[in-house]
């Protein structure tokens, strides 16, 4: 099952719109993408996309904000595949949006738990293996909202801005071990999760607001991830790569 030429990638949120595109794109660069997602049917759908590309991948159904589940999944990856060359943390999303005065604490905490703590737990779980290898790359996911903020998105923006500060700290700590940590910040991207909040008309209008005249395709984000995962970015760490059609220019 383990092909010695294959590099091992773990894709958190690999069942999602962007996660599926990322997993699929990574195959082209010689990775075997392994999936971690709490949604079994979404993850299974990605498995069949990967199978069509000739990759026998696997799915771990786990909640990234649950330490025990994350540990179990990563232990399992390591015992089966022996290494982790790449970790891409994509699990998450806006989840809840309310004006501050109406935002229940429980929902605010849930957003932070998945987007921010989930990133922490998955990175932490991958580090011993990458240190042992003296190599590895981690890519965490922020958002245009992490830079600009957004009304009703105090929790999402806090979590996504937090990912950037977190990733920079990790970049400092892990650089001496040959491990790179970068952040991808997608702009508005055409995934089912996002598009269901729009009518066809409001979606088209929202695309016209973007300098390049269209929302991102998940494949656009996957190209950015593939770049950060590749030797082409060997000297980049602690950076945030914005793939957003010019929507936000930080």
């Amino acid at each position: 099952m383990v092909n010695a030429m294959e590099k091992i990638a773990v894709v958190g949120g690999g069942g999602g719109g962007i996660g599926r595109a990322v997993a699929s794109r990574l195959c082209d660069d010689g990775f075997l993408p392994l999936l971690l997602d709490q949604n079994e049917s979404a993850g299974t759908e990605t498995l069949s996309v990967l199978a069509a590309k000739g990759r026998a991948s696997k799915l771990w159904v786990a909640d990234v904000s649950n330490r025990a589940q994350v540990r179990e999944a990563f232990d399992n990856v390591v015992s089966n595949y022996g290494r982790i060359d790449l970790l891409v943390n994509l699990a998450g999303g806006t989840m809840y949006a309310h004006l501050i005065q109406d935002f229940p604490l429980s929902e605010w905490l849930a957003v932070i738990a998945v987007n921010l703590k989930g990133t922490f737990l998955c990175c932490q779980a991958a580090i011993p293996t990458m240190k042992r290898q003296s190599s590895g790359s981690m890519i965490n996911t922020s958002s245009n909202y992490g830079i600009t903020g957004g009304a009703t998105r105090t929790a999402y923006a806090a979590s996504k801005a937090g990912v950037i500060g977190f990733s920079k700290s990790l970049a400092h700590e892990l650089a001496p071990h040959g491990i790179r940590v970068n952040t991808i910040a997608p702009g508005r991207t055409a995934t089912a999760r996002v598009m269901r909040n729009y009518t066809p008309e409001s979606w088209a209008a929202s695309e016209r607001e973007i300098p390049m005249g269209r929302a991102g395709d998940p494949a656009d984000i996957a190209e950015g991830v593939a770049f950060l995962a590749s030797p082409a970015s060997a000297y980049m760490t602690g950076q945030t790569l914005h793939v957003n059609g010019g929507m936000v220019l930080p």
């Binding site: 501050i100 932070i112 921010l116 922490f120 909202y145 992490g146 830079i147 600009t148 903020g149 957004g150 009304a151 009703t152 998105r153 105090t154 929790a155 999402y156 923006a157 806090a158 979590s159 996504k160 801005a161 937090g162 990912v163 950037i164 500060g165 977190f166 920079k168 700290s169 990790l170 700590e173």
Partner: peptide, 19 residues
């Protein structure tokens, strides 16, 4: 890493609040 996460988080939070 937790401190930097919390402090950069405050900046994202504040921009949303400001809006």
């Amino acid at each position: 890493a937790h401190y930097a996460a919390s402090k950069s988080g405050i900046i994202g939070f504040t921009k949303s609040l400001a809006l």
